[in-house]
Design a protein around this nucleic acid. Sequence first.
DNA 1: GTCTATACACAGATAGAC
DNA 2: GTCTATCTGTGTATAGAC
Lengths: 179, 179
Amino acid sequence: MLEAAWRVARERGIAAITLREVASGVGMRAPSLYEYFESKEAIYDAMFAEGYEAFLKIMPGPDDPSEPRPRAIAWIRRFFAFCRADVARYQLLFQPAIPGFHPSEDSMQLAGRALTTLDREMRAIGLTRPAAADLWTALVTGMVNQQIANDPGGDRWERLADEAAAMFIDHMERMEELV
Amino acid sequence: MLEAAWRVARERGIAAITLREVASGVGMRAPSLYEYFESKEAIYDAMFAEGYEAFLKIMPGPDDPSEPRPRAIAWIRRFFAFCRADVARYQLLFQPAIPGFHPSEDSMQLAGRALTTLDREMRAIGLTRPAAADLWTALVTGMVNQQIANDPGGDRWERLADEAAAMFIDHMERMEELV
DNA sequence: GTCTATACACAGATAGAC
DNA sequence: GTCTATCTGTGTATAGAC
């Protein structure tokens, strides 16, 4: 059911999902979907939650390098891979792609967990300023954004990912020394 | 005419413009708009061109500081101001906010001029690697993006703008020395 | 549970009178 | 040039038969 919705999203774009098409993807008619979801919004919400669950799984963990620089590089590479593996999912999670869509409380909580995990991660690599996480998210999403928007089939920004991560770590470590 | 379209865009969101509402904004009915524009797409296109013309005007120039660091800081501040002054315009120019909208050749040329100007600017402050402009656009749009999406009324990212610009310049200058 | 039929609301665009 | 009336299409959602 959600599987069919993702298929449509990937083919037509996340904002172009229609109930008719999702239903036809599972051999049904549109009204039958209301047995499983209260509304179209509820479908988006379930997809949003599913997306964040997948996202939480690819956050840095014990298997990653422990030194800040290689750890950040490993992480930005995986983030690129995650976003590019499913652009529709990327748009749903990280872009205001669906006018008027607001995730439910439950889903927002899931998204919040990603942020607290990120904060903990920053402290784990020795970055104590709150600015660290904010600057990092801006840099990383900016890189992926440019890549997907302006060079969807290439690697114009992806090949700069390591450099971006290194720039960030070098800068933040220098700032820490001043504290 | 375009003025009315911008008004609607600011009120309802750039993607939610309707011909009826634009028309009513100038005391007309929807069909009359076709005397001035071939289609709704043509209206978006004209707005897009107008937006980029305004954008070109705020790019760095002779009145800005000439030293790389303060010059980059002045520029990122002005970019924030430009985007936040009109979020609808920001979305039209820098975000894939309107599904299926593709600017005309003429408008794309205007957008291209912004990029060549940026390249020249990078060389003017001593950055010769092509990566410089790409990393800069990613960083700057990422910052604005996070600000508008996650803290529209605050300054959580805007207050980090100077630091981001400094981080970028410091990093790029160090890279130049290695060439 | 799934269907057909349909309500309802919008949108962009066109025809043709004035 | 501007209008009214309308076409055509698309979408979400509901009623009620099976």
